[in-house]
Amino acid sequence: MNIFRLLGDVSHLLAIIILLLKIWKTRSCAGISGKSQLLFALTYTTRYLDLVTNFVSVYNTFMKVVFLAASYATIWLIYMKFRATYDQNHDTFRIEFLLLPVTILSLVANHEFTLIEILWTWSIYLEAVAILPQLFMVSKTGEAESITSHYLFALGSYRGLYILNWIYRYYMESYYDLIAIFAGILQTVLYCDFFYLYITKVLRGQRLQLPA
């Protein structure tokens, strides 16, 4: 554990809590992509299967359980409790265009051809692109509420901080995982355009509105 990873995890946790609280407090999931949240739930489910096979640390187990629970709670809020507020007409990204390449890539580029390892790899590749339906929704409606943009900023910062963690681990522990690094860089790059808008608009008190 180093400071970059800890900050990354905190940022990830913050993002998930911001989203849950936003939906709960406003009693609405308007502007939130249910598809992205489904992809994140799939990501955590396939990645954290090792919860039942091997123990890493109390911290590790605790965070995994929180991420899983929060993710399923979010799905429940969007698709069950506040279903009437779900903006289905704007959540039109075709996720099969993500699932197909992610599945093929995980079968081809993995560390070991075993079920648990392939599911881990699948989750890493899927996480990298899971935010696309959400970003697509923001670009389609041309705007995002500021609380939604805080969520996206925290979520994007998480993988960015993980990159610093990987650089640190490479030098300090001679540890590196090319699959995680490749997918993590892709994931962070996907947020770049959003980061630019967040810093130039939201932080200056303006609404996140895309140029027409």
Binding site: N54, V56, S57, N60, F67, E112, T114, W120, D177
Partner: peptide, 10 residues
């Protein structure tokens, strides 16, 4: 690279 399943990150 990784011999068995031992990913320690989230």
């Amino acid at each position: 690279i990784l011999q068995s399943f031992k990913h320690d990150e989230l």
